[in-house]
Design a protein around this nucleic acid. Structure first.
Lengths: 343, 343
DNA sequence: CTGTTAGCGCGTTCAT
DNA sequence: ATGAACGCGCTAACAG
């Protein structure tokens, strides 16, 4: 059932039927209801491809999953997708998902999407401090929304978490519990959120007049293994930390394993705070204290922002920063070590 | 740069250029190379939408994320998507992802995809024992591949794990360790894989001449919480199990928490085996013994199977069953309890 | 308010 | 081996 046969059946022109269906003002109420009804009865569905060609739009949004080659893809992302899904579904926009490993193969994927007119808008995640994908999209004046923030002089739309504030909060929590030697297991510096977290950490220490000990600030590749490795090296320090802030929950998991393997008790001998609040975080042993961020709502909001961007809202008006919330569970506790040092 | 301007620039007709680009035999070798080169130089990309309209295909594949309303979406799925991504990317097919909660809202999403001609093929996951989605697709003779299996008399393409074999293996492992009271925390019966797992469990017990105790077979909603709750009730039995087989790793996590909360040691007092080998499985305490399945390769294979299906391979030739592998880690151990009962 | 006509950009008969 | 002309299904500019 296409537009032509539907209009023939109604004794109307395709134009009128099309207009009635698309809610144009100039159609009489009588014919509109008549058309609507006939469309429903005949199960008419406009052919999206024809529509797209006529309108010159793709009616689709693109997302590229950052796909670590050997590794498991970020479980985080599925939740973000789920959040966006409902919004795009309602707008009857297709969400086109592709996967690309970070690296030289990544930009070509974006080019194919943009230059091949496959999508009308793009969502950029796992943002880097300097991000060529964003520069590229900015150059082409292509609509997009970033999850996170990057360094560029040009305005762009983003939804970011307040990483600095989050780590101020987390650090203050440990300080309030009496900790003085607090380590930061941070993400690699090329990732956008690493800097903010570091800032927040230093800011909170500074406010409490605690000197930053560079040996307590280390970089991790965000895997459990690396978190484990790094936490061990931290515990091997002459004056090991009594509190550890982690870049994400996965890292925190590794750190917990390290602490336990040393015969220490997490939450008593060493406090640990994670970031993300992934599904497993409430179920570790002990349950992980972490910074919670609402991923699915963020996905939905990003989708809405992109729709706004595509219909012309200037990027300056589409910039939001959300605050993660500290979720107290069982891995943080008062500092029990005299002199503020474990063991 | 579209076909018209490219052909004008070459002094050829659109037809010839089109044919040269699409590898038709009847084009002279000279013009073909000339066309190819010009296309590359001018960065010509065929408009996919126009192509689709002319060819009557969507050049897109659909996947619907099963989206548990309040819950976190399955991290499993992102990995499956990543696996499919590379294959479809290479075939320059778009992967359209939508999310739908299980329930009455689910089928309409499939209908919109199929009847709206938005995709040429579909991948069905989180398969149910009786699955209306599959019946629907079969009725319409629409190409699809199922991850899992379902009960229908009609042939269809699928890639499934050998659930029965997996649970034979897991059960045998515990039996070999001397366990006699082995519990099965299974998935709800409406999910396709539950039956096979139950079968495997009973088959292995039967082979070892161990009677099935119905009180040891319980159903779980696959959440950590429910796994925890159910494991507790199992441990409260007059004669509790010394081994617990879990429907998935998440459930196993809950079971581990339950065992620990009773002051028992996982892997010594009670053995636990999971299923899936999710990223966290190697990092629980102790590390989880589980049935590993290669998710990303499965995704890639499913994508290939769908491509075959779309180009006419009969479904009978597209049916594969893969065997998960037992991954021994730290949660299984010899039965230490006299009489085969914990406590 | 409704209809006629002309594209949208490509693939594809049917000629030549 | 090449080209002219038509169609895919829909929207939009231009009448009336």
């Amino acid at each position: 059932m296409d537009l032509k046969s539907l209009s023939q059946r109604l004794g109307l022109s395709m134009t009128t039927v099309s207009r009635a269906l698309n809610g144009y003002e100039e159609v009489s109420e009588a014919t509109r209801t008549r058309v609507m009804e006939a469309a429903r009865e005949n199960g008419y569905r406009p052919n999206p491809v024809a529509r797209r060609l006529a309108l010159g739009r793709a009616e689709a949004i693109g997302v590229v999953i950052p796909n670590p080659p050997g590794d498991f893809a970020d479980p985080f992302f599925i939740e973000l997708l789920a959040g966006m899904g409902s919004v795009f579904e309602a707008a009857s926009l297709d969400l086109i998902v592709t996967a690309a490993p970070e690296g030289p193969a990544e930009l070509p994927v974006y080019r194919r999407l943009v230059e091949g007119r496959r999508v009308d808008g793009l969502i950029v995640g796992r943002t880097r401090r300097h991000d060529e994908r964003i520069e590229y999209l900015l150059d082409r004046d292509f609509p997009f929304v970033v999850h996170g923030r990057t360094t560029t002089s040009r305005p762009y739309a983003y939804l970011d978490m307040d990483n600095a504030q989050a780590f101020v909060t987390a650090t203050e929590r440990l300080i309030g519990l009496g900790h003085r030697r607090i380590a930061l297991i941070n993400a690699p510096a090329h990732l956008a959120f690493a800097a903010g977290r570091h800032d927040g950490y230093e800011r909170a220490l500074g406010a409490a007049a605690i000197a930053v000990d560079p040996s307590l600030v280390v970089v991790c590749d965000l895997s459990e293994q690396d978190g484990h490795r790094i936490a061990l090296s931290l515990l091997d320090l002459p004056r090991p930390p009594t509190g550890i802030l982690c870049a994400n929950d996965t890292t925190a998991l590794g750190a917990m394993r390290a602490v336990k393997s040393r015969g220490l008790v997490v939450g008593r001998d060493v406090s640990i705070i994670g970031y993300d609040d992934l599904p497993f975080a409430g179920h570790t042993d002990p349950p992980l204290t972490t910074m919670h961020q609402p991923i699915r709502p963020a996905g939905a909001r990003i989708a809405e922002m992109l729709r706004a961007r595509m219909s012309g809202t200037p990027p300056e008006e589409l910039q939001e920063v959300w605050r993660p919330k500290l979720l107290l569970r069982g891995t943080d506790g008062p500092c029990t070590t005299a002199g503020g040092t474990a063991r």
